[in-house]
């Protein structure tokens, strides 16, 4: 029962309250770049949700079994005294967090890049139709801060230690929240094409001002949350 409650909480929190675009400022490049047309926004949103879910799953395993110092760490299991102060490294003060501090950024980004490549190849083989729909957006996702951001937020920067299911759910629902924001934005921007906007505000500036009002309405969800 507790798990289901936690998952529901994660669903609401990561889609609405801490919406990745509107509250956490992650993944703004595709948000501004790909929202001119609704069909593109849906394609990008789907691709991103897919990659974010996969990325969280893989980086969470990488974090628990390789980087994080804990009972599940494979290095600790193989050689329990590896981080021990009485180990052969004695006197050199081996920091138990050395692995996650030094290797986190590099290993995550490599895993994500490899994953995106893999997803691209797999989709090409399994579902050519989906591949062509998402095709151009997939390579762009490697350098999308929403993916690396969600990986960090569910592992090293999580407010409390999460389980694998909770972490993966966070990734999925963050992607869903992203898609919702992109869809709303593309609807606004398609209408904006017909509006008479001052020349200096055309394009990105007016898009940001509209985003501001969207963020204002999403801000209301945060006020509803019990602290």
């Amino acid at each position: 029962m507790n798990t289901i409650r936690n998952l529901l909480f994660i669903a609401v929190a990561s889609t609405l309250v801490y919406n990745f675009v509107l509250a956490r400022f992650l993944g703004l490049c595709p948000f501004i770049g790909v929202t001119r047309k609704t069909s593109n926004a849906i394609g990008m949103g789907m691709a991103l949700t897919f990659v974010m879910t996969m990325a969280v799953f893989v980086t969470f395993l990488l974090y628990t079994y390789f980087l994080h110092y804990g009972p599940q760490n494979i290095f600790v299991r193989v050689w329990p005294r590896i981080f021990d102060y009485n180990s052969p490294f004695r006197g050199k003060t081996v920091d138990t967090m050395v692995l996650e501090r030094v290797l986190r950024t590099g290993s995550y980004i490599l895993v994500i890049a490899a994953l995106v490549q893999l997803v691209e190849l797999a989709l090409k083989k399994v579902s050519p139709a989906l591949y062509h729909a998402l095709g151009i957006y997939l390579p762009l996702i490697t350098t999308n801060c929403a993916v690396l951001g969600v990986a960090c937020l569910t592992t090293t920067d999580a407010t409390r230690p999460l389980t694998l299911i909770e972490a993966t759910a966070t990734g999925f629902f963050a992607g869903v929240g992203f898609t919702i924001a992109m869809l709303l934005m593309s609807g606004i921007r398609e209408t904006l094409e017909l509006a008479d906007v001052p020349a200096s505000l055309k394009g990105a500036p007016i898009a940001f001002i509209c985003t501001s009002f969207m963020a204002l309405s999403f801000f209301g969800f945060a006020l509803k949350l019990p602290t």
Partner: peptide, 24 residues
């Protein structure tokens, strides 16, 4: 509100508009 999320988008949007206006 300006130090919250909506303010960030608003300030950036207006500043971008200002720079575009200057270059125009």
């Amino acid at each position: 509100i300006l130090v919250q999320a909506p303010g960030a988008f608003l300030v950036l949007g207006l500043l971008m508009g200002f720079f575009k206006w200057m270059s125009l």
